[in-house]
Design a protein around this nucleic acid. Structure first.
Lengths: 240, 240
DNA sequence: CGTGGGTTTGAAATCTATCAATACATGTGG
DNA sequence: CCACATGTATTGATAGATTTCAAACCCACG
């Protein structure tokens, strides 16, 4: 008896995985997927868990299946900066380098699908399509990093906050109606994280959020749930 | 008669080109090099020349052969941020995207070797080695961008200046003795450019340079030539 | 009901930006 | 070769934004 053609040969682990479509695994044929899945394991990590340490040997990469991972760098005196946020179905890892230059930490509860570094690097040799997907994600991350440099270097505190909220809304509004003019979501970051992302202090973040609330651009429930009734008005404050 | 084996089949255009060794062209065999060279042309551009405009269709990429190219982004009200600097033998271009998201401008006199976008993208199909070199450069740029985000978000004005001088010293000290403890170079950027790179004003840049000079960490001749007698002392001010 | 993490709010201090004037370099023409 | 003009850089005084220090608040949780 013939199995459904679409799931024929797809590992159970991958059957319902978002990364198989939009993520890097989309580059793999069923055979390769089986090979990779054999060495993969899915796991969850609580908010705050360190996934990769700075200056640490990295021997496994992962796909983000749900939740948010923050990438941070820390100066010797403790000042910290978030240099990247990863959402599902992003690939987590820096090919061609055994030692991490940054810290990866779960910003929320996260679910990951991890596989040995060697598996991916071997598979990259065989599958130009896989390498190309990884390359494209890196280009996307570079675009995002450069956009963020403008925010860090040239925007005011209130523009930074508005830009941040917009970025989050675009990445995690669950009911992702393409061009809805409103949004509602849970902040995946604490005030301290937001401060580290924007190059501000906790207090400044709090004050600016309060101001946006006072101006009725957003409303906040339980310190976490954000409602943006009109994304256009928020965008007008992002200073682009 | 047999030609010298090392230059056998190498196009004249490429014979003395740095990009053929350290740059992306190093990925190409002589045959491919000939094919690419046929559609390439070398040219110079004076300081200030716009090489690629924001939101402009891009139909050619290039290698930087000498000089410095700055990549900038501008907000609608004119605030500007430099989001990347490219030195020889960097590759200039953003594969997989027809429209530029930023502005590329000659920061000094530059010499470039340009080729049609289509040539490279076609050649990437055939040569995984070429694609890999481009991928590696993108990863390097991403690493650099993330380092710079820390500088923009978390360092003080004087740390920013010290970090900037160190970065320049590492990239363009002509007599590149690997681990010399001193350096001497011409600043490739004006005070205004430095300000746009660091997210500061021109006055703050000037004041911090003056302070470094007063503290004898650097000396400056003709506003351009910088001498760093002890790179260690400069590094100590970069705040890493 | 108290404890503690995370958040908000307030007042003062600090850093950088802004505004304004002066100095310096480079290149031109007399 | 010098005087002048122009763009660029330095220096000074003041204003403003964000940080720092401190205290109160709020909620989730034991």
């Amino acid at each position: 008896m013939r199995k459904d053609v679409h799931t024929d040969g797809i590992p159970v682990l991958c059957a319902s995985c978002e990364a198989r479509h939009r993520g890097v695994c989309g580059a793999l044929d069923p055979e390769q997927l089986v090979a990779l899945a054999r060495t993969s394991h899915k796991y969850n990590a609580g908010s705050g868990t360190e996934l990769v340490g700075d200056a640490e040997q990295v021997d496994s990469y992962a796909n983000v299946l749900s939740g948010v991972v923050k990438l941070t760098k820390t100066l010797s005196d403790g000042r910290q900066q978030i240099v990247g946020l990863q959402f599902a179905p992003d690939f987590l890892g820096r090919p061609f380098k055994a030692e991490s230059e940054l810290n990866a930490e779960a910003a929320t509860e996260v679910s990951l699908c991890a596989f040995p570094r060697a598996s991916i690097e071997r598979m990259m040799q065989d599958s130009p399509e896989l390498e190309r997907r990884l390359y494209r994600q890196t280009l996307k991350e570079l675009d995002e990093a450069r956009d963020w440099m403008v925010t860090l270097g040239r925007k005011t505190a209130s523009e930074k906050i508005a830009s941040f909220l917009l970025m989050i809304a675009r990445n995690i509004d669950p009911n992702a109606e393409p061009d809805s003019s409103s949004a509602r979501f849970d902040l995946p970051l604490t005030r301290a994280d937001i401060a580290d992302f924007l190059g501000l202090t906790i207090e400044t973040v709090s004050r600016q959020l309060t101001k946006l609330r006072a101006d009725k651009v957003i409303s906040i429930e339980n310190n976490r749930q954000v409602i943006v009734p009109d994304l256009g008005r928020l965008e007008a404050r992002a200073g682009n």
